[in-house]
Write a protein that binds this DNA or RNA. Structure first.
Lengths: 151, 151
DNA sequence: CGCAATTCAATTGCGCGCAATTGATTCGGA
DNA sequence: TCCGAATCAATTGCGCGCAATTGAATTGCG
């Protein structure tokens, strides 16, 4: 049970990552609740504001989420009037997600969020950039490791 | 919609953190499923292996989780025979969590996990240490920001 | 063309996370 | 001592995440 025990909570890399990710979501919550959004819903909008008409599959590849998560989430956003879900004409297996005018309008209200968060974090631009790069690198290593390498 | 748009997904610090945390959980999953554990259950055991008889409140302060999360989680672990939940004698409001012999025995099987993860990550010790420190710092900033500072 | 394999989204089931509330217990000031 | 405030775990309700399955549509191989 010594402090340099590999099973000590304080020595884990995983735990700060886990805690920080949840704290990040909570830091966004008050900003997003004003727009009636949850954090994953905000991520969906970030994608659609860049690529309107994205498919569910494409959305999943961008956000690393599957249809089991996205389908009900998108249905809730559709019920809120933010998006429209439409079977693709070219390929009836896929479903495309389109912003409604309300969903597009929300973008203007969201423009203040990044700077509000930057302020909360109190990191310099280069600190934030370096940290993002480091975490991205960590993610890339991790996202390799849990794929079935056979076949 | 340019690449230096503050609302571009690629410019967010939050998203890699969110994705990396989930990828980390998934990287642990195959190692933990052999022990019949989920990732948060593993964290609970890390605490108990250090401090057997911890209260629910204390557990929550260590893991930054509340009773709404911990109570059902601990009940599942009790049903698995890993822990015992017991109203405290000194203060009947609180509940103490004790390892069963099975819960203690699981520690031996878990000793290989940290090195298995270190291998998966492929980071040097100092890279991992620095990243952990950076993320901890990020967490500390974040955990301040969402507390009600009034009163 | 014909049909098996593949690709999609949707569904099911379950375990978190967390806000909000409830109810029991303890604390602390008058 | 009494009683209101505070503390604690449990509960309720809801939105993720994700593994596994289902069913429809498409692809591609013979």
């Amino acid at each position: 049970m010594s402090m340099d025990d590999p099973l000590s909570l304080d020595r884990q890399l995983c735990f700060p990552l886990y805690a920080a990710a949840r704290a990040m979501t909570q830091a966004y919550a008050p900003l997003l609740s004003r727009l009636g959004l949850t954090y994953p819903q905000y991520l969906v909008l970030l994608v659609l504001w860049e690529t309107d008409g994205e498919t569910v599959k494409g959305m999943g590849e961008r956000l690393y989420l599957d249809s089991g998560t996205l389908t009900p989430l998108l249905k809730r956003m559709e019920a809120q009037g933010l998006v429209r879900r439409e079977r693709s004409a070219e390929d009836a297996r896929s479903v495309r997600i389109y912003l409604t005018s309300e969903g597009r309008a929300l973008r203007r209200k969201a423009t203040s969020i990044p700077e509000a968060m930057a302020c909360k974090l109190g990191l310099t631009l280069q600190e934030a950039t370096r940290l993002r790069r480091d975490i991205q690198r960590l993610f890339e290593v991790l996202s390799q490791s849990h794929v079935d390498s056979s076949k």
